[in-house]
Amino acid sequence: MRWRLLSAVFLVMTLVAAACGDDDAATTTTGAAESCEIADLTLVTPGVLTVATGEPAFPPWVGTPDGENFDTPESGTGFEAALAYALAAEMGFSSDQVVWVRTGFDEVITPGDKNFDFNLQQYTITAEREQVVDFSDPYYSNAQALVAFPDSAVAGATTFADLKDAKLGVQVGTTSLDYIEQVIQPTAQAAVYDTTVDAKSALEAGQIDGLVVDIYTAYYITAVEIEGSVIVAEFETPAAAPDEFGLVFAEGNPLRACVDLALAALRADGTLEALEDQWLVGAGGLAVISG
């Protein structure tokens, strides 16, 4: 029931956003048309849009959920890969003019010039990160979810109180840790892992009861990475702390304004929503854990 309500609210918001987006696109295209010509853009390699993602890049962000085109953003399959090509097309680039480079998650935060125009690998927009790099407008809103084995102590959890004594694990550099510490607040400190592989091992070794990850990582983990694991539930996202993904730009990169325009246009004409529907499994039907 709760989910229905949330979905309805989300739908209304999307429609409103879409309506607003229309206006934006209409008013700004005339003013910014000149500066957003390919020839005028500040690009790492002139005439080419250099896009960065992780290595390897996982479905559903890159490649199809059944494993086809795994780690092949050039295929344009997967939500982020498809979004990158949609943005490129919106900005006037042909598919051949999109070049992919790979970066580690941390590499993006080293001082110095970047070797990409923008980077997309599920970077959550936070105020702290915004001091070091620039983010685009959000292209996706995310929720946290709990992954565990069906026989785990947390398998039947429905409230935060049920997780009070749980030993939870997260992957480093995700907002899931903040979510555990600020919202769930279990007694035991959450364990922090470098990779999902390590977290999986800890889960199998019985060192943690469950894993907190964002919902679409949860779909991938349960479907592909950790055999036998299930999504116990998704967590209620507090309205004050939305978890939204943004494209990362080098600090002060003027390209951002043009990419934001393209993103607004994709949102306005429904492309963004269509891509979500195509690549990201609908999150309905999951139980919700709340306070």
């Binding site: 998650f105 702290e128 070091v132 480093v172 364990a191 922090v192 470098d194 060192q207």
Partner: peptide, 22 residues
């Protein structure tokens, strides 16, 4: 041992770094 999820000093520094990009 931080690879095992243990929250020792370097891991705490790592967490802070991942959170703030600093």
């Amino acid at each position: 041992v931080f690879v095992l999820g243990v929250r020792e000093g370097l891991r705490e520094a790592d967490i802070y770094n991942a959170r703030t990009f600093n």
